[in-house]
Design a protein around this nucleic acid. Sequence first.
DNA 1: CATATTTCAGCTACACTGACATCG
DNA 2: CCGATGTCAGTGCAGCTGAAATAT
Lengths: 156, 156
Amino acid sequence: MSDDAPPEALRSLASWLLTQTAAHAHRLVTDGLGAIAARGHHYRLLASLDEFGPASQATLARHSGVHTSDVVAALNELSAAGHTARLPDPADRRRNIITLTPSGRTHLTAMRERLQAVQEDLLRPLDATERATLTTLLTRLLAHHENRERESRHAG
Amino acid sequence: MSDDAPPEALRSLASWLLTQTAAHAHRLVTDGLGAIAARGHHYRLLASLDEFGPASQATLARHSGVHTSDVVAALNELSAAGHTARLPDPADRRRNIITLTPSGRTHLTAMRERLQAVQEDLLRPLDATERATLTTLLTRLLAHHENRERESRHAG
DNA sequence: CATATTTCAGCTACACTGACATCG
DNA sequence: CCGATGTCAGTGCAGCTGAAATAT
């Protein structure tokens, strides 16, 4: 459904280039993870647990950037599959402490491998220097907009 | 919900950087267009009509990259607002010929202005050279993945 | 017959909102 | 009472699928 050349009015917009390439990236990630019955949120949560250790769901949401309500749903799936465990926090009975199980660790490794392949696929036309440049530019944009969000939350 | 620093396992993934920055870009675009009761699809369709002239819905879908089924919905909205007109094609009675009305042209101009402001907002931390670099890299990625899609459609 | 166009109904993923009960 | 937490229900947009009706 997008055979012809898009109008210049679109191709000249950075926002359009970003969302379009992101759509392709998202497709590749979804397909790559889907092949091992995983999804984007799963990786974000398991990677956060792996890097920061066991945490409450709220902390996990802050680390991974996944919305708390989506954390609930994703952890339902991950726990049902035995990749995470929900333990009540004895010190604060509102909280669950989420831990990575051995099975979750294995699953995380598999996801990492899939995602590495996806990056290669995604960035194929760029050489190493260009990939580094792209990463730097995107990282700067992201940092800028994350700060703006933080500030507006602090102000609001 | 994304206050803390995301794990390195995410920050090092180009796919993650892309989808995150795209999410911010999408928010800015949605907000910017929302202020004048417009949406992304509207701009893509009106810009295509402006650049390529009147077209059938199917052609419009191919030009704009908007799915045919979504074209139907967006044109319902645009036509209800008087920004486009659907005329039956006398030469092919399956088709509607879509045209930009004067009101649609005015609306398109307003969207263009909003979107220019959004680009400025989006790219603020980058200087002119860096913006050009980003545009080039993204354009190359996009071209690559569009070709892959075309080929797999041709093969399949 | 196959193909193209328009339309409708619905699905998935992600980001997000609002409400609620629970607990500190 | 205020605030944080976990849960559930539901919204909106984008991208997409499938099917039907109509016409070429």
